[in-house]
Amino acid sequence: MSIKIRPRFTLRRKRAVWGYVFISPFIIGFIAFFLGPIVQSITFAFNELSIKAAGFELTYVGWENFRYALRVDPDFVRVFTETTVQILVELPAIILFSFFAATLLNQKFRGRWMARVIFFLPVILTAGIVYQFESGDILHDVLDYVADETGVFSVSQSMIGLLLILRMPASFTQYILAAVERVPDIINASAIPIVVFLSALQGIPSSLYECAAIEGATGWETFWKITFPLVSPLFLTNIIYIIVDSFTRPGNTLVELINDSAWGRGIYGVSVAMTWMYFGVIAVFLVLVFLLLAKRVVYMEE
């Protein structure tokens, strides 16, 4: 009769335990500083919250907070639509611009390093407090006014003319105009997406291009048949990054309104209800993007 010895810890189980050990900070943090607060924020959305010296009190109010945000608050509906529309408008522009800039910076030219240093600069210049100061500064107002009078304004004027002559649909014309006005914002938001695209471009094996050149492919064909498909997974990454970035980007008026409701006016429940509506729209949008793109994205076989 043989004695079966089953070790209590096989190597695999031991490894699994170590896995949990390494991610344990995250599990603790997730429960304590994410899941807990999320559950609380759901309850806050349906309650009126008042802070007392010893703790906080909740009074159940049902959908009142949502009703207040949508019906009573003078700014919410306007700011809400503005902000969500703005991010949806800016998203394609940022994606296109950063892809374009990445292909530009991927070429070899003198001063390329310097250009990259400057393109990446906005990442470190995103302080909310600096933005607040800028928007209240009269010097900037004056300079913006001058810029409107001389540069951007006339450009937009002549562009409207051109687009009208070309008989472009009005919505397209408006989109282009809105995008032109936000050029600095779009460029500033593109810094990290540019680097992501750039690294993808540099990751494409040069043998593929050589092969295409030998087969006689034109630059246009090479771009659409090689470059674009191989970079396509990064579109999803970048869309997610841009949306996440928009939550904390200074100048997000909806976030300002939410903060003001909580810390300025003390209507905590309403501010949480506003955030849930904001997140709802973003979540629906992300799911749509994911369903639309996930199937079409090409992954290179290892």
Partner: peptide, 21 residues
């Protein structure tokens, strides 16, 4: 990834209260 996708304002008020009390 979910922790990234949720706007930080969502958990701001609860976090404030958790650290206050």
């Amino acid at each position: 990834i979910l922790t990234l996708l949720v706007p930080p304002q969502m958990i701001m008020v609860p976090m404030f209260l958790n650290f206050r009390f």
